[in-house]
Design a protein around this nucleic acid. Sequence first.
DNA 1: AAGGTGACTAACA
DNA 2: ATGTTAGCCACCT
Length: 108
Amino acid sequence: MNFYQKVYQVVKKIPSGKVATYGQIGSIISSPRSAQIVGFALRALPENSGVPWQRVINSEGRISIQNLRHRQSEQADLLKKEGVEVEFRDNAYCVDLAKYLHRFKRFG
DNA sequence: AAGGTGACTAACA
DNA sequence: ATGTTAGCCACCT
């Protein structure tokens, strides 16, 4: 199982209605400095992978997707559909991490 | 096989 | 507070 596969495994564990950060995912798979690699893994995801990539946001609680295939507004809509409050502020979509960050068993 | 590329982050200025 | 920089490291040439 390569790094990307590990990332997908962890992302799949994020329950609907919750979010996680790139750095958090990296920490879970014992690679706390590879947050950016986590982003690569999600970018490499095919269209209908079954991996809830929309639940992964950056450490500031903002949506940082920069993929031509999807837009930030699309990720925001998906999260709203799952019950996550997303607020558009300062030209970016924001989520309250204190409220919606998922706590993994091995993290926090 | 060596170097470039970033859906990141924390540290600076 | 806001913008920039330098580490970061699995993948892809």
